[in-house]
């Protein structure tokens, strides 16, 4: 007779439909690549679209929004990094942009502002999707037995 108190040493299999680490990594790489490539093409609004998609996906995989934020930030960081790799003065350019924009003349200001724009777009997109898509009503408190959906207005004593 098996001892009910013994915990199995084998890893618990992933819940059905939840990506494993490789799945999350693949999603991150794909999203990052999409954001980076579209940024090079001038499609600055793609992080918002990624956020919308992440919002949909987050209804099933809650961590999808966080992953999308990191992917968008990385996707926008890559073109900047490529500038530096090509020997272009990315830091000095960032400093100049900050100055011209009337911000403190530091490269970090522009870099942070740029990456923040990507992150904000993802969060706004995800928020929009999650707010507009139908979601289950809150579960009833522990002392209620039954489902809110079963409660009809007609049953209300004040109706």
């Amino acid at each position: 007779m098996a001892d009910q108190g013994v915990v199995s040493a084998e890893p618990r299999p992933a819940a059905r439909g939840v990506p494993g680490p490789l799945g999350w990594a693949a999603a991150f790489v794909v999203l990052t690549a999409v954001v980076a490539a579209t940024a090079e093409a001038g499609a600055w609004f793609v992080p918002f679209i990624v956020g919308v998609a992440a919002g949909v996906a987050s209804l099933r995989w809650r961590r999808m929004v966080v992953l999308a934020v990191f992917a968008a930030v990385a996707g926008w960081a890559i073109p900047m990094w490529l500038l530096a790799l090509r020997g272009l003065p990315a830091g000095a350019t960032a400093r100049a942009i900050a100055s011209l924009a009337g911000l403190p003349p530091y490269a970090a200001v522009t870099i942070v502002a740029t990456l923040l724009l990507a992150a904000l777009q993802v969060l706004a997109g995800a928020w929009l999707t999650r707010a507009l898509l139908p979601r289950p009503r809150p579960r009833r408190p522990f002392h209620d037995h039954g489902d809110f959906s079963a409660i009809s207005a007609e049953n209300s004593p004040r109706s």
Binding site: E40, G42, W44, L83, G87, P89, I97, A113, T114
Partner: peptide, 16 residues
């Protein structure tokens, strides 16, 4: 303006 691929960042090319 801040699109890292096409925005003000591309002015870096004039700085090389």
């Amino acid at each position: 303006a801040l699109d890292p691929g096409r925005g003000a960042w591309t002015s870096a090319s004039g700085g090389q």
